[in-house]
Design a protein around this nucleic acid. Structure first.
Lengths: 122, 122
DNA sequence: ACATAGTACCCTGCAATACAAAGTACCGTG
DNA sequence: CACGGTACTTTGTATTGCAGGGTACTATGT
């Protein structure tokens, strides 16, 4: 069952493709969220869902671990008002550099895809 | 060995992410190429590489087969001026509908990702 | 006629990873 | 002390981009 009710049109094909589109850009999205300050997983998921980027915790947790291992992120433990302690993630200096690179790659990628709809001739 | 010499900045991390970004948008890109008329695989690969979308034949061939099986595309055999015959692909009516849907999904996706860099607050 | 080179298509195996689902652990409350 | 909620982790599956190798057809040169 798809949770993408808010989309105007969402056929089987489109749903599969949008799922694919998310891949590879999640790292950029997470860094953009953390650009505004530290956050823990539920914050990040909520921020991404708030802009219609549909991700689930099961996807974000492993990605955060990978980014932490790559030293793009770091975290600190912090107590929760109710529940177990949370891992609050924030960018490392290396993470800021990665973010900067990914911004450029993203812009270039969008330009490339969009240039196909006008300029291409075979 | 990466062939992405033309990119201004391409670290290990960026290269991996751009490879991921390509995934899921290739179908849209192929449809955008075929929007201008039929083409065979080498035409398509050349058109994508011309706008810095780096794909290889090994990726495009299976994708074209999947799209043909999904009845998004069809093809006709045509003789080559030199070499074996070629499969010239073109969009089916269903393909035009898929293209239209993917255009909308793509625009929405780009907006979502870009909205993170400004409006997000945690 | 035959060997060679070039072009085009196809298939197999590998690696990465999004996602689902189940499991573990901690905290507060009744 | 049991229970519900929250948070983190792990396991398994399916998808798919990519590399590499294989097959087949055509044209060319000897």
């Amino acid at each position: 069952m798809f949770h993408e009710y808010h989309c105007t049109i969402m056929t089987k094909e489109t749903a599969a493709s949008t799922a694919q589109m998310r891949k590879g850009v999640l790292e950029l999205c997470i860094l953009r969220v953390l650009e505004h300050g530290e956050a823990y997983t539920s914050d990040i998921v909520a921020a991404l869902q708030a802009v219609d980027l549909l991700v689930v915790e099961g996807t974000v947790y492993p990605l955060l671990t990978r980014m932490k291992n790559a030293e793009t992120l770091t975290y600190r433990w912090a107590e929760s008002p109710s529940g177990p302690p949370r891992k609050y993630y924030s960018m490392t200096p290396k993470g800021e550099k990665v973010l900067n690179d990914l911004e450029g790659a993203w812009d270039q990628f969008v330009d490339s895809v969009n240039s196909l709809s006008n300029a291409t001739k075979i």
